[in-house]
């Protein structure tokens, strides 16, 4: 059985190599499959790609498919191990979040999620009756003492050496113990077939992006572990227009803002702004830090449900 799966994935691997050979370095993450078909249809949103023989072609954006060129076994292995010597942390500055929700869009694009499925969600918060409301993006906290990995009966969810908590869809049996264990409600269950199954069906499962998603398994924020491998900031961090997110390596004591690309000392940032973590009393030791929503850069525009107030 095992043999068969890995053979299968090797075949897939060869196939995807063949497909992506057409696209040049910049677009190596995507394949050109179906580009010709798109030309016949009405023009939609297109992107310019450079082929290897130096020709510029226009390709319909919908026709681009992500490809992964490593075989499944390799992806699983390095995904379990993590990146040596790193210790990733995120800092979220609540004084700057104005509910632009660009982080959520980017995340859903990256991880094959429907608009109603969240790895990261911007919540409207109000701590007490007379306190000021604020917006709070909430990803997985990637705890150093994660309750979710303790309860998994099949070792499907685990913590890696760089601090990231991941899920292996190939092992997950969908028991949902981990959803019950997580105090931050960071996990979602794929009740139905995931979004665009056709588009992703030939893709080798990448444990670091949890793509393709699988019905009957768990998914959650992964700190864009596949992007970190290429020294890129997570999708949400780099897509925020308001400078809310900082991300970096705690071992280096530095975090970089995804919007301004300013790099600052992690310890100073937390110390000077009274950074805190969510529900510290549970002893979960989150890796996501929050800076309080004081001195806000904008006025709170109130009710989320009121479309007019959305910015």
């Amino acid at each position: 059985m095992k043999e068969e799966t890995s053979n299968n994935s090797r075949r897939k691997f060869l196939k995807s190599v063949g497909i992506s050979i057409g696209a040049a370095g910049v677009v190596s993450g995507f394949s050109l499959l179906g580009a010709a078909k798109a030309a016949a249809q009405e023009p939609r949103e297109t992107v310019n790609l450079l082929t290897q023989d130096g020709q510029l072609v226009q390709v319909d954006k919908d026709q681009l498919r992500p490809t992964v060129t490593e075989p499944l076994t390799e992806l699983q292995k390095r995904g379990r191990e993590g990146i040596a010597g790193k210790s990733f942390v995120m800092v979220i500055d609540l004084s700057k979040c104005r509910n632009a929700r660009k982080c959520m869009d980017a995340c859903q694009n990256h991880h094959q999620l429907r608009p109603d499925q969240h790895h990261i969600n911007v919540l409207q918060m109000q701590d007490a009756e007379h306190t000021a409301p604020y917006f709070m993006p909430k990803p997985c906290q990637h705890c150093d003492n994660p309750p979710c990995t303790k309860v998994c009966p099949v070792d499907a969810t685990f913590k890696r050496q760089d601090g990231i908590v991941l899920i292996d869809n190939e092992r997950c049996i969908g028991c949902r113990f981990c959803i019950a264990a997580c105090p931050y409600s960071a996990r979602i269950f794929q009740w139905t077939e995931p979004k665009d199954p056709e588009k992703y069906k030939d893709l080798t499962y990448n444990i670091e992006a949890n793509v393709p998603q699988k019905k009957g398994t768990i998914s959650k924020c992964l700190f864009s572990a596949d992007r970190l491998r290429e020294d890129k900031l997570p999708s949400c961090v780099s897509s925020c227009p308001n400078g809310v997110y900082y991300f970096g390596d705690q071992n280096e004591d530095a975090v970089t803002n995804g919007t301004t690309h300013e790099t600052v000392r992690f310890s100073k940032l937390i110390e000077e702004n009274a950074g805190y973590t969510l529900m510290p009393e549970l002893g979960t030791k989150p890796r996501v830090y929050y800076l309080p929503p004081k001195n806000r850069a904008f006025e709170f525009n109130g009710d989320l449900l009121n479309e007019e107030n959305l910015h």
Partner: peptide
Amino acid sequence: PTDPVNPLDERAMWGTR
């Protein structure tokens, strides 16, 4: 000089089997 800590060096309740 900083030794990166590897949380997996230690056996823990949250560890895999």
